[in-house]
Nucleic acid binder design. Structure first.
Lengths: 140, 140
DNA sequence: GTATCTGCAAAACATTTGCAATTCT
DNA sequence: AGAATTGCAAATGTTTTGCAGATAC
């Protein structure tokens, strides 16, 4: 089974119809683990899929988000990034080259792998969910 | 010494000329620890400072960022938020009411205070700085 | 009186929306 | 044919920029 077919199969399992564009977008993310922006996806795929539009890339990543195929990475202030690795892990963005590295966590939740040699300037830790008051509100 | 004057003094110490608008913006952030967006700052202060413009609020928060008076909080996908508390701490955003709560860290770096009762849906952990290769590059 | 600061209007982007054309089954 | 998908064009909303007038020292 080639890469295209296995990616299409993965989308089917996630409840997404594997159109050509969708499979190519996810395939790109699985092969280049570079946490791409919509623009990066469009620029990379557009030469090979000349009719591709940015709207379709937006539609696709939003559908992927909704279905839990990718996670949103807000590390960038200007543009959103997307990650097909949906396991819990931290991200490091280099101020100079802009690259985004993955950092794995150890069982205690302390940073474990890949942090050696990095010069940390800023740390951001976000949690999202429901606060106590909002959990008490009846669902409509 | 009243609140306005001590805030002005604080700005001077940080190397910022304490114009009326700047002092009022920082004063608002110190008194309402609500991690405001530019729009929240503008809406709150505009009635009392009728000539205030959004451009000035943007200028002000960007100057504050540059001088280390506030930190940028990217927890919101649509708008940036700003925090006059520049100590290291985590943030929690409620999906329903949109409020942002502060979470203090204990000495081991594990979450400590305020997390009880929250229903966590998503965790984002970002670090920024210089990667190994970029540290090796000579400064121009 | 000269620097700086403010604020209006316009520009610059990232993202979304409306809708018509295309594609798939 | 019918339903879903794609993609163009226009709209939306946040943030930045250019510049002229106001303010401060």
């Amino acid at each position: 089974m080639n890469s295209f077919e296995s990616t299409a199969q993965y989308l089917k399992e996630k409840g997404i119809k594997p159109s050509y564009q969708r499979v190519r977008v996810l395939d790109y993310m699985l092969q280049n683990k570079n946490h791409p922006t919509v623009d990066m996806l469009y620029s990379a795929l557009s030469p090979e899929i000349p009719t591709l539009s940015k709207t379709t890339v937006y539609n696709t990543v939003n559908l992927f988000l909704e279905k839990g195929v990718v996670q949103l990475i807000g590390i960038d202030e200007q543009e959103m990034r997307y990650d097909a690795d949906i396991t819990t892990h931290a991200h490091f963005k280099c101020d100079r080259c802009g690259r985004i590295l993955d950092l794995r966590l150890n069982s205690e939740g302390a940073i474990f792998q890949g942090i050696e040699g990095l010069k940390i300037r800023e740390i951001q830790f976000y949690l999202k969910g429901l606060c106590q008051e909002c959990q008490a509100v009846k669902k409509v």
